[in-house]
Simulated assay, not measured.
Amino acid sequence: MTLKMPRGSSSSSSTPPMISAMTYRLRRFGALADRDLASTGALAEVWLAIQAAGALGLTD
């Protein structure tokens, strides 16, 4: 996944903390779920599982 900085942002090589945290969490989830979230199929599978859990009342 590639994220682009908004226009007018500094072009420094440091990544904003929020993006670093989200990237870490997504990579960690992918590793724990044994899924490559760069794959459209795997991403759809995860999304469907989250939707099903919500429909069954298994989420907060």
Score class of each variant (00 low, 15 high):
28 R>Q: 15
34 D>W: 06
46 V>Q: 02
46 V>C: 14
21 A>H: 12
40 T>C: 05
29 F>N: 05
18 M>V: 12
21 A>F: 12
3 L>R: 01
17 P>Q: 11
13 S>L: 04
11 S>M: 14
53 A>S: 13
15 T>G: 03
56 L>A: 15
18 M>W: 13
1 M>A: 00
58 L>H: 09
26 L>S: 05
26 L>K: 03
30 G>D: 13
1 M>Q: 00
60 D>L: 14
5 M>C: 13
3 L>W: 00
47 W>V: 08
60 D>S: 11
58 L>T: 13
4 K>N: 04
48 L>H: 13
14 S>N: 08
54 G>K: 05
12 S>P: 04
15 T>E: 01
13 S>M: 08
32 L>P: 01
37 L>R: 03
5 M>R: 09
49 A>E: 14
17 P>S: 12
24 Y>R: 03
40 T>Q: 02
22 M>S: 08
28 R>D: 15
6 P>D: 04
23 T>E: 09
52 A>W: 07
12 S>E: 05
57 G>H: 09
41 G>A: 07
37 L>F: 15
38 A>M: 10
44 A>E: 06
39 S>V: 10
46 V>S: 00
41 G>N: 07
49 A>S: 13
15 T>M: 02
56 L>G: 03
8 G>C: 05
48 L>P: 01
53 A>C: 14
34 D>Y: 00
52 A>G: 07
55 A>D: 10
19 I>P: 00
24 Y>M: 05
5 M>V: 02
60 D>H: 03
54 G>E: 03
42 A>P: 08
36 D>H: 11
31 A>L: 14
37 L>G: 01
17 P>W: 05
5 M>I: 02
21 A>Q: 12
17 P>F: 04
47 W>T: 06
39 S>Q: 08
50 I>P: 00
2 T>P: 05
38 A>S: 15
47 W>L: 13
20 S>E: 06
1 M>R: 00
53 A>Y: 03
42 A>D: 13
45 E>I: 02
27 R>I: 04
9 S>Y: 11
54 G>A: 06
55 A>V: 12
14 S>R: 11
3 L>I: 13
